[in-house]
Design a protein around this nucleic acid. Structure first.
Lengths: 225, 225
DNA sequence: AAATTTCTTTACAAATTTATGACATTCATG
DNA sequence: CATGAATGTCATAAATTTGTAAAGAAATTT
């Protein structure tokens, strides 16, 4: 799956260039022209890297950086600062506040890509997170945590397992018997409404995202985009 | 303890400058004028960071880098490449081969220090944290000290280990068996309320902060903000 | 060796999850 | 559109898991 990069930058032209270059190199890109829209999105979903301009209409880039670093959830996301001021002091300031790297405008496209690659390589070497994402549903298998639209969702064990099986097979129908054998163990006999029951509560708990679980008549269930 | 940096560089003058700057900033520095002496030392002891020149009398810097990356022992040591050629192609080449960052000669001393700091911070961020903090709970692993709301908290051995495991994995559910194997050793068999018991006393001792410990039914426990 | 502290176990209570069977609803099909 | 099979829904009982207290073991200190 493509790595996701958030670009926080208000200058249209620069956005274009960055976005184009990154997409050309296989990254998924989302653009935020101001801090507010960026924060909003961060609540819901976190990227693999952030390209952060220093000058923004509503908030100082350094300030944003500081906030990111003080939050446990965002502390380890690599941040590449982009600045128009080229004095060294500024660079140092950015770096010491916790930026992982910086770029001075104007910069070459190749340089941008190189630095992004380098940052991603390093951060991915250390943490290989086990994550499943579909629309507003986010699962972290390591943490045993489920988020829906940014909010923590409490699932019981069976519900969690059900959700995991579905999310690990997005697009594919999973037969009822497979659920039974994998979650309920070995040979389950006799018809019962148990599975349907759990599907029901799972759908309900997922709220508006619950409709991603489709019933495949005579077969089982499928998670769908 | 000061962080250790190996500088692999044959030019005397540049060595001088780099070495001086780094030492001035509290790093310990060792200089290697060629690849051979560097390899020799690496066998014995590994640094926290390597400053690697591309042009060396006996071996190409890129080749050295490649070797470092292919060895499990040295794979994660951050490498900052130093090059005289300033064409972008070279930069890219360096980065794609696994360098974490690069510098083009001539470079400013401040820039060197910034990049070194950034790299070290990045690599250390993921590694070990000796101070663990969550809301009113503070642990210092060096001193074996726990504070809650500013007051010293006396914990027994098992309680301390329990607390440490939880605090080192804030937000993540830790399975019961993991506690058992890590704190009680090897294969623990037979159901018992031992773990629950200790969790109970830990929660109690933590007072109002005890509620940060959440039970994850059928899994284990999790420390939560 | 006695006293104290820490750790483990047991037995039961409390809390939560899960299964079940009756009944309703939907769907594909003739 | 009637029919039968498959799935959805519900209340509630059953099963499982965790919490708690108290007592006994084990380790440590005095």
């Amino acid at each position: 799956m493509a790595l996701l990069i958030y670009v926080v930058e208000d200058d249209r032209n620069i956005c274009e260039i960055e976005s184009y270059a990154l997409k050309n190199n296989g990254y998924k890109v989302e653009i935020f022209p101001n801090a507010e829209s960026f924060y909003e999105k961060m609540e819901q979903h976190k990227p693999d890297l952030i390209l952060l301009d220093v000058m923004l209409p509503d908030e100082d880039g350094f300030h944003i950086l500081q906030k990111l670093r003080s939050n446990r959830e965002t502390r380890d996301i690599p941040v590449l600062m982009v600045t128009a001021k080229s004095t060294e002091i500024d660079k140092v300031r950015g770096l010491d506040m916790g930026a992982d790297d910086y770029l001075t405008k104007p910069f070459g496209v190749m340089e941008l890509i190189s630095r992004v690659k380098a940052l991603l390589r390093r951060s991915h070497r250390s943490v290989q997170q086990n994550e499943l994402v579909l629309d507003g549903i986010y699962m972290n298998l390591d943490n045993h945590v489920v988020n829906v639209n940014g909010e923590v969702l409490e699932l019981t064990y069976k519900e969690y397992e059900l959700c995991r099986m579905l999310m690990q097979n997005i697009g594919n129908a999973i037969p009822r018997e497979k659920f039974m054998t994998r979650i309920w163990g070995a040979d389950y006999e006799g018809e019962s409404r148990t599975l349907d029951m759990h599907i029901k509560t799972l759908r309900k708990k997922l709220g508006d995202q619950g409709s991603h679980i489709k019933t495949v008549r005579n077969v089982g269930y499928r998670m769908e985009e």
